[in-house]
């Protein structure tokens, strides 16, 4: 069960400032160009909570696009494990759901210390989405717009106040420290909170039935001609994978600086033919159709088989970042509506 509180809107900056004393505070900030990005908060009053989906997802704070893992020099190895205590404020339900799934990849049988250390030291304060974006379809995936479990702290915007839910152990501990800031929710608060949840559902423009898409693929109704037409539009930019909060593929490279060798990992993409390049130059997936198919199969078919859930949280970032308009929402929609193979 979660502990529930009420926070006056005017007390939010104070609370964040207190949190910042012990941890790095990361939140959505507006840049001069007009974009809103997650970065370290300089001025708490400039945090932008009413913002469209932010590129890239917060996975970059735990699993950066380029991460120096080790440095070795003359037999000495320095492990570069980072994990400054941080709080990410203002992320969305889909981001939290995605991180919970990524945890299963990096924190499974083999623990990835580079990821888990950062994850353990970061508190997530998510804000439910009263007004989802036109690209969002988290409701279809059951990963938003508000969460029932799996979060640290979840805020619901009730206009002049926030309805606060603390779920995880560490979240409850932190809330204990700031008891003086939070009130006890009244019956009206609960009702208002439910209304926000209830109303948000009407704003979704997209309903994507990935179960239908999965059935279509599994039943063999989707032929290669469909995938050929999808692939023809692929720009091979890798954006779908780079922006996907669930994609975790990386490549490992070594670089030599003046006697020190640095081993780094960089984000990788199964959309590239070099992803499975073998010594001697053999490319098992030279065929672009197979690569496109692989990504969708991984998300729609293998996900449910292996981890019991789709490899998609419906955040809509691939919709924003795909130049060829062959993102999960578009393709998933086409698949679920029955594919015309002609």
């Amino acid at each position: 069960m979660s502990d529930t509180f009420i926070l006056d809107r005017n007390h939010l900056p104070y609370w964040l400032r207190q949190l910042r004393k012990e941890r790095k505070l990361i939140g959505p900030m507006r840049k001069k160009s007009g974009d809103i990005v997650y970065e370290e908060v300089s001025n708490i009053h400039e945090i932008e909570l009413n913002c469209p989906a932010i590129l890239p997802p917060v996975k970059e704070f735990f699993f950066p696009a380029t991460e120096a893992m080790l440095r070795f020099k003359k037999g000495n190895v320095n492990d570069n494990i980072m994990g400054t205590p941080a709080v990410i404020f203002g992320l969305r339900s889909c981001d939290v759901s995605a991180l919970n799934l990524v945890d299963r990849f990096f924190g499974g049988d083999i623990k990835d210390r580079y990821y888990t250390k950062k994850r353990e030291n970061t508190l997530l304060v998510s804000v439910g989405c009263n007004m989802p974006d036109p690209t969002c379809f988290c409701m279809s995936m059951g990963t938003g717009p508000f969460l029932h479990k799996g979060y640290d702290i979840q805020l619901t915007d009730l206009g002049d106040r926030y309805f606060v839910e603390a779920r995880s152990g560490r979240a409850k501990n932190i809330m204990n420290k700031f008891r003086h800031l939070f009130g006890k929710p009244s019956k009206a608060d609960y009702e208002d909170q439910y209304e926000a949840v209830h109303l948000s559902q009407t704003y979704f423009e997209k309903r994507i039935n990935l179960e239908g898409a999965r059935n279509a693929i599994v039943s063999g109704a989707v032929h290669d001609d469909f995938w050929r037409s999808v692939t023809a539009r692929c720009f091979e930019c890798g954006g779908c994978v780079y922006e996907c909060p669930l994609c975790t593929c990386f490549n490992v490279i070594d670089r030599k600086y003046d006697g020190t060798v640095e081993r780094a990992r960089v984000w990788d993409t199964c959309m590239f033919k070099g992803f499975t390049r073998m010594t001697g130059g053999v490319l098992p997936n030279r065929d672009r159709i197979r690569r496109t198919k692989r990504w969708y199969y991984h998300k729609i078919v293998y996900g449910p088989e292996q981890i019991g859930t789709f490899g998609c949280v419906g955040c809509g970032r691939c919709t924003i970042t795909c130049p060829g308009v062959i993102d999960m929402a578009t393709v998933g929609m086409k698949l679920s509506k029955g594919v015309d193979n002609s």
Binding site: S33, G34, D35, V37, P52, L55, P56, E60, P64, A65, T66, E67, F235, E236, C237, G238, G239, Y242, V266, W267, F272, I320, T321, C322, P323
Partner: peptide, 25 residues
């Protein structure tokens, strides 16, 4: 450590090509 596209830019509108995505290395 990484690169991300600008959503408000009139040309790319939140997209990048493979060279742009890897322009930091």
């Amino acid at each position: 450590t990484g690169v991300s596209p600008s959503r408000s830019h009139p040309v790319n509108r939140g997209t990048l090509c493979v060279k742009g995505w890897n322009s930091h290395e």
